[in-house]
């Protein structure tokens, strides 16, 4: 009995299979590359080689692409990233009080009290200090992103870089390069700037209490972890499957949901072989002008979403009831 969790994010699409006691038995990390459907199919293709449909008894979806993911995989639970991350974190450690999550395009802080989320914040208008920003800078410096953290740890001093805005941070970084600072000092400066920005924006007004869990793709970066520890004065823990926490949370929520309902909507791994096409149209039923997305699987309509009045998406539900 396995439970599937799918997290379709801006940068990566993660799939995990967990067992009854929430251990991760399989994890797949794929780049979304702007095509979530293809990424999910790719992931299913890998899973298909080792698992059978009947072994997977629940499926959950999360991430910014959770709507499309849930429609095509037939998810039992569709949850937002914040709840998914908190669920996964609480599963591995009940004492966690603060969750720092930095992903590809967004960053969040989740405050937990008595094992329940009591406050949270997400970045709103600015993506400075997220994974994509670091990716870009790594590219500029021609350093593989995986080694970024090691470079930061090697530096003895940190160069102060203006981290308020990603564009200005970049110009400031170029300036510092031209002043002759070496790569590792600049990278450490960048990590410090990112953390400073995070604590000043997302962490503003929040009381950060240990134990602190650091998750999301950026948690792989040791330089950032170190910078958090320096600025907060507490130890920061990075869970083993830090980049998969969203998917793990979705799988756990799906597991609980199916235990309640007793049946799953999961469509099976053969999805990998189907040809899935999406078409969008502007609904003309009323002045709302919703952009409705229609998904076809092998020329059969699989579902709709994007409408406010649920005129179209109700058809999805009716169809799935009939099936």
């Amino acid at each position: 009995m396995y439970y599937l969790g799918v997290d379709v994010g801006s940068v990566s699409t993660d799939l995990v299979l967990i067992d009854e006691s929430s251990n991760v038995v399989e994890k797949i990390y794929l780049r979304t590359k702007g095509n979530p459907i293809k990424a999910i199919q790719e992931g299913f293709n890998i899973l298909r080689n080792e698992y059978e449909d009947y072994e997977i008894t629940a499926a959950g979806a999360t991430g910014s692409g959770r709507m499309i993911a849930s429609t095509i995989i037939g998810a039992d639970a569709v949850k937002n990233e914040i709840t998914a991350h908190a669920t996964a974190a609480l599963e591995i450690d009940n004492d966690v009080r603060t969750i720092i999550e930095i992903g590809g395009q967004d960053s969040k802080i989740i405050i937990i009290n008595n094992g329940v989320v009591c406050d949270f914040a997400m970045n709103t208008v600015c993506a400075a200090g997220t994974g994509s920003f670091l990716d870009r800078q790594a590219e500029r410096l021609e350093i593989p992103i995986e080694e970024f953290g090691d470079y930061a740890l090697r530096a003895n001093t940190s160069v102060r870089i203006a981290g308020r805005c990603a564009v200005f941070a970049e110009s400031d970084m170029i300036h510092k390069q031209q002043m002759g600072y070496n790569h590792s000092e600049i990278i450490r400066g960048l990590c410090d700037a990112l953390v400073r920005n995070y604590l000043n924006n997302i962490g503003k007004g929040k009381t950060i209490i240990p134990k602190i869990l650091f998750q999301g793709g950026v948690a792989a970066n040791k330089g950032i972890k170190k910078a958090f520890e320096n600025q907060l004065g507490f130890e920061v823990f990075v869970p083993e499957n830090h980049s998969m926490m969203g998917a793990i949370g979705a799988a756990i929520i799906a597991k609980e949901r199916v235990k309640k309902t007793g049946e799953t909507n999961f469509r099976g791994l053969d999805l990998a072989k189907s040809s899935i096409v999406t078409k969008s149209f502007e609904c003309e039923g009323c002045p709302n002008q919703c952009e409705v997305v229609k998904i076809y699987e092998n020329n059969n309509v699989m579902g709709y979403f994007g409408d406010r009045c649920t005129k179209w998406s109700n058809r999805t539900r009716e169809n799935s009831k009939l099936a």
Partner: peptide, 29 residues
């Protein structure tokens, strides 16, 4: 929640959903 012409709907909905989850779990707890 702050709204303006630049507000992205996805992030907004995520917040509303997460807030509902928060209330639900809080109550259960």
């Amino acid at each position: 929640l702050v709204v303006d012409d630049m507000t992205g709907e996805a992030g907004y909905i995520t917040r509303v959903e997460a807030f509902i989850d928060l209330l639900e779990r809080r109550r259960n707890n």
